[in-house]
Design a protein around this nucleic acid. Structure first.
Lengths: 232, 232
DNA sequence: GCGCAAAAATTCATCAACTGCAAAAAGATG
DNA sequence: CATCTTTTTGCAGTTGATGAATTTTTGCGC
């Protein structure tokens, strides 16, 4: 359910905000605008559930943790758990589906900031990565847990699937104005590749700074790899 | 009748292969003769289960089909189903874990056929794709079902996860003899990208020929994409 | 064919993820 | 306080998946 947000015009000093991102921005602890007790309790419960899930899994492992435990730890009924998350995995990962900022979309569709597809793709991925940089703590713990519990990887694919059609539209829309030959499927996989590589690099760097900071290096590796094949 | 191998209860000692490499290699086309009635029945049951699963899902959709139905259709007990597959999804996809041929592994580790990482990676992916070309029918139906039921995509990632460490070892082994700077993580994702792109292209081509036939085009697209960024 | 040992299938029991439904509780509102 | 709305909760039920004991099937020597 979409949170009730009556304000359309928010003057954000936050980077990369847009109508689409408003849900995320308000979902973060950064919104002290106490829009009623109900909203606050909802956020608190959600956070408590994620905390409980992550702590319990970190301690006992994914399989040994039941939603009953998580709910008990968070002080809610098991049934309530499923009012907040549609699966145990979602809770452990603190899954939050944020859309792409509209200005990023528009720029990309119109031929992108640079006009070069790969570079412009990088900008899109950076935008996708931005929320992960804000959530930080939860994403960090989620990634650690994902390493210990590879079963959680399935959510990655669910994410991709959820965004595949959207990305596909994005690519086709851009293709109309500035044509290219690359398949949408390959581009989607490339987005996933960039996302994951950047996130892993971020993790290897001890979660310092922003995940998007490691994106250029990832792309550079890719370019080097292809270039090495060309020059030989 | 799938000539592809599954598992052999007997372990015929294959001489001459290094223990390290052999771990990466699973049974490959290991059943020359229909030895033993037991083995044949096992295969038959397995095939029957896959058939039943694929047909039922194609007709009623993934969620509407229970393992009970599949088992009934195949004429076995529900419990037996799980003796053959560890999940419903596995049966629908006819999941078969085939390893890499040993010669491909050795060649790649020793610096690959061409010495260029990307090209050599392509050879590895082609080898991974080969079994899919042989199974053909089942893979074809699996891919069709995967389009209708995106939930099945998660098995793709499970597959990748299962092979990630193996691929990682492969990359590190090669790095020792002929160094490169690319992260193993990126290479793994790149393998997945190639696999998926080639398979989708194969599907778009109406499942004619071999999936591996579409691999060069996929790589070419990637090269073009990167090149376009370089020249500008 | 007969019996025996191993392997596999089956039966039965159990657990956990997840869903629908209706009642109860708690915020919001006047 | 009275009332309306939103959310939580209890409960029953379905399904996927696993473990243990038991029965059936198979391979094989006699």
């Amino acid at each position: 359910m979409a949170p009730t947000s009556s304000r359309e015009t928010v003057a954000p000093a936050e980077p990369g905000s847009s109508p689409d991102l408003r849900e995320l921005v308000s979902a973060l602890e950064g919104s002290p605008a106490e829009q009623g007790l109900r909203e606050r309790k909802k956020r608190a419960r959600r956070a408590a559930l994620i905390d409980a899930a992550q702590n319990l899994v970190a301690e006992h492992g994914l399989d040994a943790v039941t939603v009953e435990m998580i709910s008990a730890e968070a002080g809610v009924s098991p049934r309530t758990f499923f009012n907040y998350f549609e699966s145990k995995d979602d809770a452990v990962l603190g899954a939050e589906d944020t859309g792409l900022p509209e200005d990023v979309i528009r720029t990309f569709v119109e031929g992108g900031p640079t006009g070069r597809l790969l570079s412009d793709l990088q900008v899109v991925v950076a935008a996708l990565l931005a929320p992960a940089g804000e959530a930080h703590d939860r994403v960090m713990r989620a990634m650690d847990l994902m390493q210990q519990e590879p079963a959680l990887l399935r959510r990655h694919v669910v994410w991709m699937d959820r965004h595949k059609s959207r990305l596909g539209e994005l690519f086709e829309a851009r293709r109309a104005t500035s044509p290219f030959t690359t398949d949408a499927e390959l581009l989607t996989m490339l987005v996933l590749l960039m996302l994951r590589t950047a996130l892993v690099a971020w993790e290897h760097a001890g979660y310092t700074g922003n995940p998007a900071d490691h994106l250029p290096a990832a792309v550079a590796q890719l370019v080097d790899l292809v270039s090495a094949d060309l020059v030989s």
